[in-house]
Design a protein around this nucleic acid. Structure first.
Ligand SMILES: [Mn+2]
Ligand SMILES: [Mn+2]
Ligand SMILES: [Zn+2]
Ligand SMILES: [Zn+2]
Lengths: 145, 145
DNA sequence: TTACTTATTTGTAATGATTACAATTATAAC
DNA sequence: GTTATAATTGTAATCATTACAAATAAGTAA
């Protein structure tokens, strides 16, 4: 499974550069989204930070994610029609969600779709490309039966 | 505003060809999704059919839409992170949603993204391209103020 | 038709994600 | 330190969706 580490200093700069005051809660929410590369839900973020910040409120997680989304730091993925998943924005990529195991995969797509600032006269802020289907893992398991 | 008409005969054939028995409820739900080209929500479909079918249950609308989605007749759009919008599938196209007025626009995209049957080893059933931003209408209104 | 089986629809209750909001706590300004 | 402002928290409300069982309709075989 992918993983990564980000220093508190980097996180602070990231927040400040986006005009968000770097509180302990915001730092940790952003850190989790960046380090946990599996497109976590609000609840997953909340549950994972709870041990470190026992007073954490789920509302704060919601508020922080909303703020970071508006500032363009993270991406709110509407991909499963159930709960929103969050993704750190660094390079444009698409997503594949498996309808069998619900795993979300990053897809490196060679397309100029992401560069479009306007389309048919509308001003574009955000572009999402979502594929749905059966992932390789699940297909292999099907064959075994 | 766009509109269109579909005969009951066409609707019946569409349903039968997809292996769905054409009940009155299913015919009307599908008819509404096809004729009302504005990507209606479950509630909008329900409210609009209620006068014609006073006994209609919202559960039936949900069941029918789920069925038609699984059969590949319609598309369930996860675009606003709030409620699912439905769209008749005839030719592949992208969508633009305005964060100001929430209007959803069809976008004719010249891309081979829709033709991909598999990607990075995963089997693709459904592809959605969603743009988010400020629509032309709302931008004009902003200028007036 | 009638009796019986199966499919569909309906109504209501439950679930679960998200939001609203007021109270509390922390931070900043003076 | 006092006051003002911002951030966080907890709880209640909202709202889309799902679960489920009862009622109704449609299909089948005498
Ligand atoms: Mn991603
Ligand atoms: Mn459309
Ligand atoms: Zn899978
Ligand atoms: Zn608009």
């Amino acid at each position: 499974m992918n993983e990564r580490t980000v220093s508190t200093e980097e996180l602070k700069n990231l927040l400040l550069a986006s005009g968000v005051k770097p509180s302990v809660q915001r730092l940790n929410v952003l850190r989790y989204v960046i380090e946990e590369m599996n497109h976590p839900s609000v609840d997953k973020i909340y549950q994972n930070l709870l041990p470190q910040i026992p007073t954490l409120s789920k509302t704060t997680v919601y508020n922080t994610l909303k703020q970071l989304t508006e500032k363009g730091v993270i991406n709110a993925l509407n991909i499963d029609g159930h709960e929103i998943k969050y993704d750190f924005i660094e390079h444009a990529h698409a997503h594949f969600i498996c309808t069998s195991c619900n795993q979300i995969y990053d897809i490196e797509l060679d397309s100029d779709i992401y560069q479009m600032q306007s389309i048919e006269g509308h001003q574009v802020f955000n572009t999402q490309v979502n594929f749905k289907g059966i992932c390789n893992n699940c297909k292999q398991k099907q064959k075994e039966n």
